[in-house]
Simulated assay, not measured.
Amino acid sequence: MNVLYFTSREILPLDSGDAVRANNICKNLKEMGNNIFLVYFGGEPDNPSELFNICNDYKAIKFPSYLDTIPGRIYKTALAFFPAQHLPTPEVIRQVESEIVEFGQKNNVDVLQINSPRAPGWVTIELDTFTKVIDFGDSFSLQFKRDMNSSQSIVEYLNNFIKYVWMKNLEEKMISAFDGSVVVSNQDANALRNVASGGDISVIKNGVDTVKFMPDNKLRGSDSEYDIVFHGNLDFPPNKKAVEYILQDVYPQIVNKRPNTKFLIVGPNPPMELQTEQVNNVEFTGYVDDIVKTISNAKIALLPMVSGSGIKNKILEAMALEIPVVSNPLGVEALSDNAVNQISVGNDANDLANRSLSLLDDRCKRHKIGEQSRQVMIDEYSWSEVSEEFESYYNELHCE
């Protein structure tokens, strides 16, 4: 099958959840014998051979230069209040649609898939040339609804309310305009069914690359340089809120009982206000080239969430690396029962702190949980299985 995969940004480097999902799906679909044609917003890659590992051909679409003018920058600043990266003029939309159709017809494309509705969604609404699938990943209206409920001020509430209404309307449009819609969990699917009844919404979970995320025994155990790790893109609001929660409510309780505990926070774009938190033995790395080596140098992963939706890649990655995970009900809600059974789930900050301390003091327990966690990832969360589900879904929709 010939698949045109359209994403809102470059999928290399793997510095976000949607980039990880897009990269692995394209790579595995190609290895299964499908032809993958990638279209993305961005510039030409420094090393095109890396893209040809995951696709047969690609087309980079650069956003119009007006966004770099003073009016364009004001426009982009205004859009910061909305869950969208770009909203070009109708003329630009028609131009992009024309390029997609031309590229798709040139390669005899059967299925057009886009990942994430935030930027490319508006482009593909009118494209009826191909069978169309949108991979929402998470339900963003569900995320913003939760953010509304946890807002700390009227201003924050109104900001989240605007985002919620905007995304709810966009999700409804997408579901009705596309032949099929995909999300990663039943919770996200139920949220979208409440947004638009009657749409074809399927659940295809996230996966983890268990070859890349291979545990390094030299970095495991009592010799680990750090005790606790959190990793994720820190300009993604749910990750930022999670780190704020840990630094303010959970970690102080841990260091109160275990003063020399070291906490490593890994991920690009750490906000300055987080780095100025007055907490001992906390280190921010920013972006790292080798995420596997960096997070493997910790005894446990502390990964609770206080907002957001969907499956958390960070939890799957830690489990694949045999790093015991401590989280909360929101963090694990979309995982399988077998996966949740390997995670120490705390209901509040005090519970999370005590569970972290218990694991830090028991190397044998950490080792046992780590091995069992990795086996669940191998058995239930392989990207090859995820890609097979996408291939079956394409065939089902394309033959209708």
Score class of each variant (00 low, 15 high):
3 V>F: 06
9 R>F: 01
13 P>A: 04
14 L>C: 04
17 G>Y: 05
18 D>A: 07
20 V>L: 15
20 V>G: 00
20 V>R: 08
21 R>M: 02
21 R>C: 04
31 E>F: 00
32 M>H: 01
35 N>L: 01
38 L>C: 04
41 F>L: 15
48 P>N: 05
49 S>L: 09
51 L>Y: 11
52 F>Q: 03
52 F>C: 00
54 I>D: 07
54 I>H: 02
56 N>M: 02
59 K>Y: 09
64 P>Y: 05
73 R>P: 03
73 R>K: 15
76 K>P: 00
79 L>S: 08
80 A>F: 04
84 A>C: 15
85 Q>T: 12
86 H>K: 13
89 T>N: 09
90 P>H: 10
92 V>R: 05
93 I>C: 06
93 I>T: 10
97 E>G: 11
99 E>T: 08
99 E>H: 10
99 E>K: 14
100 I>N: 10
101 V>P: 03
106 K>T: 14
111 V>F: 06
116 S>L: 13
116 S>E: 08
119 A>N: 12
120 P>N: 04
128 D>F: 08
130 F>A: 01
132 K>Q: 09
133 V>E: 06
133 V>L: 13
136 F>M: 10
137 G>S: 02
143 Q>F: 10
144 F>H: 14
146 R>W: 09
147 D>V: 00
150 S>Y: 03
151 S>R: 09
154 I>H: 05
157 Y>L: 14
158 L>P: 02
162 I>V: 15
167 M>D: 12
168 K>Q: 12
169 N>E: 14
170 L>S: 11
173 K>Y: 12
174 M>S: 05
174 M>F: 13
182 V>G: 03
183 V>A: 10
184 V>L: 08
184 V>T: 13
194 N>P: 02
195 V>T: 15
197 S>L: 06
201 I>H: 05
203 V>E: 07
206 N>V: 07
208 V>I: 13
209 D>Y: 13
211 V>E: 14
214 M>V: 05
214 M>R: 11
217 N>W: 02
222 S>A: 15
224 S>R: 08
224 S>E: 08
230 F>N: 07
231 H>M: 14
239 N>E: 10
245 Y>A: 09
247 L>C: 04
250 V>T: 12
254 I>K: 02
264 L>A: 07
267 G>N: 07
269 N>I: 01
273 E>A: 12
275 Q>N: 05
275 Q>G: 06
276 T>M: 12
276 T>P: 00
280 N>M: 02
282 V>T: 07
284 F>L: 07
285 T>H: 03
286 G>P: 07
288 V>C: 09
289 D>N: 15
289 D>T: 12
290 D>A: 04
293 K>I: 00
295 I>L: 00
296 S>M: 11
296 S>E: 11
298 A>I: 08
300 I>N: 01
307 S>C: 00
318 A>V: 08
321 L>P: 01
323 I>A: 06
324 P>M: 06
324 P>I: 02
324 P>V: 08
325 V>G: 03
330 L>C: 05
330 L>G: 05
332 V>P: 03
338 N>V: 03
340 V>P: 00
346 G>C: 12
348 D>R: 06
349 A>M: 04
350 N>L: 10
355 R>T: 02
356 S>L: 09
366 R>C: 13
368 K>P: 00
368 K>S: 15
369 I>L: 15
371 E>G: 12
372 Q>K: 15
374 R>P: 03
375 Q>W: 00
375 Q>S: 08
378 I>M: 13
384 S>H: 07
385 E>Y: 01
387 S>L: 12
389 E>V: 00
389 E>Y: 00
392 S>W: 00
395 N>M: 13
